[in-house]
Design a protein around this nucleic acid. Structure first.
Lengths: 211, 211
DNA sequence: CTGCTAGGTTAGTAATCACTAAGCTAGCAA
DNA sequence: TTGCTAGCTTAGTGATTACTAACCTAGCAG
C-alpha cells in the first residue's frame, strides 16, 4: 500500500475533485478541437478520461456548460501572450521589431497549440455565442491597438498614409492565412522555417508600408 | 421522358426526378453551410424541401453521399471563375491588373456565395476526405500558377527575388483573411468598399514586391 | 374509362444521444 | 475496528438519429 499523497500520477486511482475536473477539461479540449461540439459525445469524453459519464455531470451541469467553460478559458489564456509581448512595442517606433515579434507570435500560437484554432473555428461555425465575445473582447481590442500604432506611425511620417485598420488586417492576414492553410487545410507548404516565413512577409509588408 | 419541359415552379406538385434532385441539393447546400454535416439532419432537409425523408434516399443512398456530392460540385464550380478570369494575366506582366483582378475575385467569391466558405471550412474541420481532394486539385494548382507567375516576374526583374510560394500566399492571405474575419467571425470592419480594400492591399503588396 | 408506374407517404426500425436515479466503495477520522 | 463521505459505477430514461418496408396516388398512355 502506497501512502504517497498524490503526485500527478496517471494511475486509475481516485482523484481529488479539482484534479478530476482539470483532467476532464484537458481531455475535452482535445476532443472538441478534433471533432467540434456536435461531433464529440459525452461518452467519448468520459471514456478518454477513464471514468464513467456521470462523473462529468458532477463537475458540469450540461455538455454545453463544459464546452463554454473551455472556450472561455481558451480564448482568454490564448490571447495573453499577445498582450504581453506586443505591449512594449506599442509606444515605440520599431516597426521591424514589432512586426517580426507579431508574426512570430501568430505562428507560435498555431504551432504550440494546434487545437486552439480548430476550437475557435468550430465554435464560430457552430454558432457558439462565446465566439462573438472573444471577438469583441480580444480580437477587436488587439486589432485596434495595432491599428492605433500604425496610425500614429503614419502621422509621424514613418509609414505611408492609408486606412490603418485595413493595413493592420493586411499583415495579420498574410501570416494568419499561411498558418491556417497549413493546419486546417493541410496544404503542403514550402520547405522553409517559420522564421523565414516571418522574415519574407515582414519584408514585403514593411517595404510596402514605408514612405 | 417528359413532354412538358416544366419551368421551375415552386408549387407543391410532383416533380420529375431530376428536378426533385436539384431541389434537394440546393436546399441541402444551404443547410450544410449553416450547420455542417453533423449539425444538419435528414429530417430538416426533407422538411425544407417540402417532402418526406424517404424521397432523399431515392436520390442519394446515404446522407454522406448527398454531402459528398455537394462538396464535390461546389468545390469544382467554385474555382471555375478563378481559372477563367486569371488565365489572361498569367502570361503577361501586368502585375497591378493581375493582383487587382485576383483580389476582387476573392472578395466577390465570399460576397456572392457566403455559404461556400462555411461549407469548405466545415468539411475541412469535420474531416471530409473531399477537402484534401479540393486542396490538391484546385487550391494547390491555382497557387502554383500564381507562384509561377511571380517567379517569372522575379527573373524578369519586375519583382524582387524571394520565395515565390510565400509571396503568393502573402497576397492571398491579406485579402482572404479579411473576408473570413468579416464573414465567419462577424468582425466589425472598416466602413470601406470592397474596391477600396483591394486597392489598399494591392498598394501595400505591390510596393512591397517591386524592385 | 382503365391500368400502369413514377413520385410520394405513413409508420416504423435499431442505434445513439445527453442526462440521471440509486447505490457501491476506498480511505480517512475517531 | 467502525462510521462517514467524497468519488465513482451500474443501469437505466426519453428523445432523436439515419435509414427502410410497405403502401398510396396523381396523371398519362392506350
Amino acid at each position: 500500500m502506497a501512502t504517497t499523497p498524490n503526485p500527478a500520477s496517471h494511475e486509475k486511482h481516485r482523484l481529488a475533485s479539482a484534479d478530476r475536473k482539470t483532467a476532464i477539461v484537458e481531455t475535452a479540449i482535445r476532443l472538441f478541437a478534433e471533432k467540434g461540439f456536435r461531433g464529440t459525445t459525452t461518452r467519448e469524453i468520459a471514456a478518454a478520461c477513464g471514468v464513467s459519464e456521470p462523473v462529468l455531470y458532477q463537475h458540469f451541469a450540461t455538455k454545453r456548460d463544459l464546452y463554454n467553460a473551455i472556450i472561455d478559458a481558451q480564448s482568454q489564456q490564448g490571447m495573453e501572450p499577445f498582450e504581453r509581448k506586443i505591449e512594449p512595442y506599442l509606444a515605440g517606433n520599431d516597426d521591424f521589431g514589432f512586426l517580426t515579434a507579431l508574426g512570430e507570435l501568430i505562428l507560435d500560437w498555431h504551432a504550440q497549440d494546434p487545437g486552439a484554432m480548430r476550437l475557435l473555428l468550430f465554435s464560430a461555425l457552430e454558432g457558439s455565442e462565446l465566439t462573438q465575445m472573444f471577438v469583441e473582447r480580444h480580437a477587436d481590442v488587439f486589432l485596434s491597438k495595432f491599428s492605433g500604432y500604425l496610425g500614429r506611425r503614419m502621422e509621424e511620417g514613418g509609414l505611408r498614409r492609408m486606412n490603418p485598420g485595413l493595413a493592420a488586417r493586411a499583415f495579420i492576414g498574410m501570416i494568419g492565412h499561411y498558418a491556417m492553410d497549413r493546419q486546417i487545410f493541410g496544404m503542403r507548404v514550402e520547405d522553409v522555417s517559420d522564421s523565414e516565413v516571418v522574415e519574407t512577409m515582414v519584408g514585403i509588408y514593411l517595404r510596402g508600408m514605408q514612405v
